[in-house]
């Protein structure tokens, strides 16, 4: 049987962690971080947002992408759960619906790494219409 983990074991991991964080902080500024919000209200949880969130946290860490993954409430797209909002540094956030681990992988590889849009975007079209009106375009 392997040893049961305790807080003393966490203490031993500390130095290792500290150097890892120092390394990361040297490489880029906090503004350079990707921020992902996973919708986790009743609707999201019931549709499997927990698995998606765990997948994102693990994979982004494994693939060395500096990101913050956090929870948010219901964004009003209950029909398209699980939904996630991805904000690349300096860009408008994009909301993706029907996210499973397969699509989450696609979002990491295509959208976060290469800024290619991936299927499943929930458009915020009301914003574009307003903008167009104000700008007098089209």
């Amino acid at each position: 049987m392997t040893k049961i983990k305790s807080l003393a074991d966490l203490k031993k991991m500390k130095d290792n962690l500290q150097s890892k964080i120092a390394l990361r902080e040297k490489s880029d500024s906090p503004e350079g971080r990707v921020i992902i919000k996973v919708a986790m209200a009743t609707c999201g949880i019931a549709s499997g947002s927990k698995e998606v969130m765990e997948y994102l946290v693990d994979e982004l860490d494994k693939r060395n992408i500096d990101a913050i993954v956090t929870q948010t409430g219901c964004m009003g797209y209950c029909y398209a759960e699980p939904t996630i909002e991805v904000a690349l540094p300096g860009q408008e956030p994009v909301v993706y619906g029907y996210v499973d681990t397969k699509r989450a992988d696609e979002i990491i590889e295509k959208y976060i790494r290469n800024q290619e849009l991936v299927e499943g975007i929930i458009p915020m079209n009301y914003q574009t219409i307003e903008k167009d009106k104000e700008g007098g375009k089209a």
Partner: peptide
Amino acid sequence: TLEGIPINEPEVLK
């Protein structure tokens, strides 16, 4: 225990 390391580090959460 962490003495300044953020608790939401992926490795800490794991």
